[in-house]
Amino acid sequence: DEIHIHFNGVTIEFRGLTEEAKKALEEAIKRGASEEELKELARRLIK
């Protein structure tokens, strides 16, 4: 299970995320999180 985020022309790929983690990332994107914020969020979620 993986998710691809297209962000300002950059694709960020995450693997092994739970549904909750995906929802958290989607919410962050909707509120306009920066690419760095998304990566940091993903790091926290994957652990």
Rank of each mutant, 00 (worst) to 15 (best):
L25H: 00
L25F: 11
I46C: 15
K47W: 15
E37N: 03
A24G: 05
I3C: 05
I46P: 01
A33V: 13
H6A: 05
E19T: 11
S34P: 04
I3R: 05
R31Q: 09
A24I: 14
I5Q: 01
G9D: 05
L45E: 00
K39I: 15
I46E: 04
G16I: 04
K39V: 14
A33R: 02
A21G: 13
V10C: 10
F14A: 04
E40P: 00
T18Q: 06
H4L: 08
R31W: 14
E35G: 11
F14M: 05
F14P: 00
H4T: 08
I5K: 01
A42P: 00
K23G: 07
L41C: 02
A33D: 08
A24F: 11
L38G: 00
L17C: 04
R44D: 04
E2I: 15
A24L: 14
K22Y: 11
I29Y: 15
G16Y: 12
D1Q: 11
F14E: 01
E27A: 11
I29D: 01
T11P: 02
L38H: 00
E20S: 09
E20H: 08
G32W: 05
K39W: 15
N8H: 08
R31N: 10
I3A: 07
K47D: 15
T11E: 05
I46S: 09
A33Q: 02
R43Y: 14
G16M: 07
R44H: 07
H6V: 12
E35W: 14
E40A: 13
E27S: 11
F7P: 01
E35H: 11
L38N: 00
K23N: 10
S34F: 04
I3S: 05
I3W: 15
E37W: 11
K47S: 15
V10A: 06
L38M: 09
R43M: 14
E26N: 09
L38A: 01
T18S: 12
I5F: 13
L45S: 01
D1M: 13
I3L: 11
E13V: 15
K47C: 08
G32C: 05
D1S: 13
G9T: 02
E13R: 15
E20C: 07
E40L: 10
I5W: 10
A24R: 09
S34M: 04
G32I: 02
R15N: 08
T11S: 06
L38S: 00
K39C: 13
R31I: 05
A42N: 01
N8F: 06
N8V: 03
I29V: 08
K30P: 00
G16L: 07
T11V: 13
K39P: 00
G16E: 09
E20G: 10
A42V: 14
R15D: 08
G32H: 04
E13P: 03
H6P: 01
E19M: 14
K23I: 11
T18D: 10
E13F: 15
H4N: 03
D1L: 14
K47T: 14
H4G: 02
I5P: 01
K30V: 12
R43Q: 05
R44M: 12
A33W: 09
K30F: 14
T18R: 09
K30I: 09
F14I: 13
R43T: 07
E19P: 12
S34V: 03
E40Y: 12
E26T: 12
L17E: 01
K30Q: 09
I46T: 07
